[in-house]
Structure formats: C-alpha cells, structure tokens
Nucleic acid binder design. Structure first.
Lengths: 289, 289
DNA sequence: GCCGGAATGAAATAATAATTCCAGTATTTC
DNA sequence: GAAATACTGGAATTATTATTTCATTCCGGC
C-alpha cells in the first residue's frame, strides 16, 4: 500500500524501459514474466486488450494491472498509453515544436521564431516524404517523363515557383520543356501542341487553381501522360492522372512550405536527365511498367 | 438490409485507400468527411475510440460506424484493425528502409537514391541555416522591408522560383510588391519607379546573373534600401547591400537546393506581414491593395 | 511443521466504448 | 410539387474491457 520506493512514473518508452531493467531482479515471478514480454512485444501491448495480452503472455489479466501499478501507473490503460505514444512519436515529434512556435507571441524573438517555424516545418515535410514516398511511382514517373518529346509544366499560384524551378533545371539538363503560364493568355494554343508523345507535370494543392485542373483534365483526355504532384487522394488531379504523388507539406502560421515538393521536383528533373543519358528512356518502349 | 453489392472488404490499408478513392464521388457528405479525415489522420483512427475520433473529425460516432459499413466492414472495430495493422507494418518497414539506406549507399535503386540525396541535402541546408542565421540582420531586414511602400523583388534563373514565391506570399499578405522580370524587357522602367521610400529584396547566387547585379547596383546608387540573399561575403551583392544574408545551400549532383533560401523568404514575408499588422513598420499600412 | 505476508488465480463488478434505433431533415425521383 | 428515399444527429442499448475483490497458494523465518 505504502509508496514502496516506486520513484516517479515513466513518461516515455525509454524511461519505462530503463525502469523495468533497473528493478528486474526484484520483481515477482509473474510480473517479471510480463515485463520481459512487454519489452519483447511492445506492439502487442500497444494494440491488445488486457485479456488478449494476458493470454498470449501466459498470465492473468490482473497480473497485468499489478505490473502496471508496480511501475507507478494507476492501471493498465495508462501503461498502454506509453506504448502507444511510442508508435505515434515517430510521426509527431515536430508537431509539438511547431505548436509551441506560434507566430504571434513573444515580441522580442518574434522574427527569429518565425524563421525557426519555417525551418522546422520544412524539416518535417522532408521527413514525411522520406517515409511515405512510393518508389514504384517515382520510377514509373521518371520513365514516362524521360520518354516524352516535350515535357509540359503546369502549375499556378503557390505551386508556380516549383514549376519555374523545374523549367530551369530541365533546361540545364537539356530536356525540352514548356511551361504553361496563365499570364500571356496563350495557354490554349500551347496546350493544343501537346500529343500523347509528350508528357505533363502538373502541380496543384488545395485550394486547386481551377485553370490548372481544367488544363490538366483537357490534356488527360487527349491522351497526354500526366504526372501529378498534389496533396491528397481527394485532389481532382488524383482522379485523372495515371501517376501521382501525394505530398504532405507541413505549415507554419498558415503558410505551407514547399520543401518536399521542391526536393521531389529536383529528383524528377535529375532522374529524367539520368534516364536520358543512359538511354533508359529514349526510344525504347516496353521497359518497366 | 440486403447485401447491397458492397464488393469485397479491403484486407490491408492500400486496398482500403483504393476503395475509398474509388467511391469518393458517390459518398454522402458526412461519410466523405470521415473518409478524408481517416486518410489524413490514420494514426488517430488506429488509436482513438469511436467517440474521440468522432469529436475530432466533427461528426457523430454513428457516422463512423456507417463509414465502416460503407466500406464493407461490419463495424468500426474491424475497420480500426486495418489501421492498426498498417501501423505495425509501416513501423517495421520504416526501420528496414533506414537500414538499407545506411548500408547500401551506392547499390540502392537509382531514382530513389536521387530523391534521397535531395532530401538529405535539403535537411542539411536547413540545419546550417538554423545554426548560422544572424538574428539582428533578420530583425533589421524585416524592419526595413516593413517600412517600404513597395517591395521590389529581383531574382533570376535559379533564384527566380524564390522570387515568385515571395511575390505570391507578399500578395497574400496584402503587401504591395513588384517582381522585376527579365522576360518582357521592361525592367529599366520598372526600376525607375523605385524610390528611397521603397525597398528591394535581391536574391542571387554564384554564378551571379549579370542583369541582377546591375539592377541591384543601380537601385542601390539611387538610395533604395537593399536586402540581399546571397551565398558568400565575396558576392558583389554583399558589397553594396546594407543588409545581406549569407545562405549556404547544400547540393546533390551539382544541383543546389533552395530549401533554406525558401524558408528564409517565407520568414521574411510573414515577418513583414506581422510587422505591418502590429504597426511596427511605421505608419504606412495603407500601401497595400 | 506452523505462522505471517506477499503473490497468484479466478471470478464478480464497474467503467468504457461500440452499436443500434429512431425521429427529424435533407435530397432525389416521378 | 408530392412521395419516396437516403442521410444525419442524438440518445438508448448492448458488448466489451479494465479493474477490483477475495479465496488460495507459495515461501522464508521461527
């Protein structure tokens, strides 16, 4: 009953692990059994019910509760919370930081905070892309684009900077490309030049520029291969582009970064360049699909 | 009540995702709302309870169950199972990937390696900026720019995407700005409008675009305050800009990233917006459209 | 070999969460 | 424009799951 030197309760998984290891000698047999099981099968603890875990670890449910209480928790549920937090933590370590970096507060360090916010948001975007990018899509996109006679680039508003970078990089790599800009009002003619032998890179994020969507749809209907970069499976682009990347950019103060979109674009450009140089995409059809 | 042709139920997350996408057009409003939420916050679904998810997605718990049934599951619990399975699997595959990245630095698939290179280079650039940015310069630059009647933006070639982003962001923030583009050949006139009451953001990296340097020099000589973003103290811009940032972008395969330049630009834009809103930038708030 | 205290197992209970039901409201169809 | 149908919100109900309780067993000291 009395606080038998339970110290403080572990707040995260590492602390919990350390706590278990520290007292493993002095634990009762069944508790030790659960402790070993927990460290070996953390996912089971995170997802299972007290009963199911008990069965698979060969103890009674009540033992699980006693185990949790031994560690200083008030029940199985809060112990389980730590195991779950461990799984989500991989994703959300930046969230916390971004939340503490609100734009408005703190007059003195305000500007530095803002920069810090964008740096953090950019890093987060990059990390998310590291984890979620689909290699197969990347390979196929580069394959399709490397085969194209002319690559049309279609992006407006917030995505326009990416388009201009792509045009620059592809130009440097001597890949023929054509930006479709809205300024001059020549878009319809430009678009009419595109054939199924060409390809389009289209970039648009919510709220989608209507002109971009319509142009993309038109091109798609005429059989021009489309590679889209967009932000969700619900994007209109996702519905009619054969190949599309989902890019989740973090934001700060309502302004989303372009960090991972940019990195992806650079990779596309260089990948296309490589494919052309090594002949992977030239006239040879029937490679990888 | 009868089995209304619900097809087969998704066994893993990818199938589930595909299933959602396939019918997204025909889903009822609230169901679609949950569908979007689920694809955006899969972790919430994996760990939350029906009630907690319902609150955070802004629907009723019963809607969640209807959503699950729409997809062919017999209830929320079995739907949740798919989200949990994904989390377990993703976890192991993420660790796998990290390992292969460390090990097979050269042998890995070409295109993925390229993307990875740009992601890494971008991260590195951000880290460098975190460490080296000069707060005082940032504060002063934002102060100067917030006072300007019109902000002129001057950047070409590789830096042009940054300029176009700045123009977009400042526009959003209702800060009057004017890009100086080379295309139309109107630059001289545009530049002639600038007065010491305005300010210029000029961005250029080695090899510096001659036109940018000349324009910047001209503006500087006419007393227009200059804020420069460039890559070294030896840059010509550093010599005649009162305020300048040194930005060291990492590169991959000879292509430098724009990650930290972009982050800095976003911070400048938002910082200017903040300064205007809070009146820090003198009294000229009416200057914007 | 017996006693006291901790540890354990098993079942009862309390808490929590999923599901169902129904009334009211939109939306479609004829 | 009316009827039918589908959708939604909210509370009631049922199921599941964590926790508590208590009788029993185990184990070291006298």
């Amino acid at each position: 009953m009395s606080e038998t030197a339970v110290a403080e309760l572990p707040r995260d998984f590492d602390e919990l692990r350390a706590s278990i290891l520290a007292q493993r000698e002095s634990l009762p047999k069944r508790i030790a059994q659960i402790a070993a099981y927990a460290l070996d099968n953390p996912d089971e603890i995170a997802f299972g019910t007290a009963a199911s875990i008990a069965v698979s670890a060969g103890v009674q449910p009540s033992t699980l509760i006693r185990f949790a209480q031994h560690l200083g928790f008030d029940g199985f549920t809060s112990l389980q919370g730590v195991f779950r937090a461990r799984l989500r933590e991989r994703n959300s370590s930046y969230e916390e930081r971004l939340n503490t970096l609100r734009v408005g507060n703190g007059a003195a360090a305000g500007n530095h905070r803002i920069l810090d916010g964008f740096l953090t948001a950019s890093r987060k975007s990059l990390d998310v892309m590291s984890r979620t990018i689909d290699e197969a899509t990347l390979d196929r996109a580069i394959d399709v684009l490397a085969r194209a006679e002319t690559i049309y680039i279609l992006a407006r508003r917030r995505s326009y900077p990416v388009a201009s970078y792509l045009a620059y990089a592809l130009g440097k790599l001597e890949v023929r490309n054509q930006m479709i800009e809205s300024a001059a009002g020549l878009d319809p003619e430009m678009i009419s030049f595109a054939t199924p032998k060409d390809a389009v890179i289209v970039i648009s994020f919510s709220p989608y520029a209507p002109a971009t969507i319509e142009d993309a749809r038109g091109l798609s209907e005429r059989g021009v291969p489309l590679v889209a970069i967009t932000d969700s499976a619900f994007s209109p682009l996702a519905s009619f582009a054969k190949l599309w990347f989902e890019v989740a950019e973090a934001d700060f103060g309502g302004f989303r970064t372009l960090a991972s979109t940019m990195a992806l674009s650079m990779a596309l450009a260089v990948g296309i360049g490589e494919a052309r140089r090594t002949g992977r995409g030239k006239g040879r059809r029937g490679g990888a699909i």
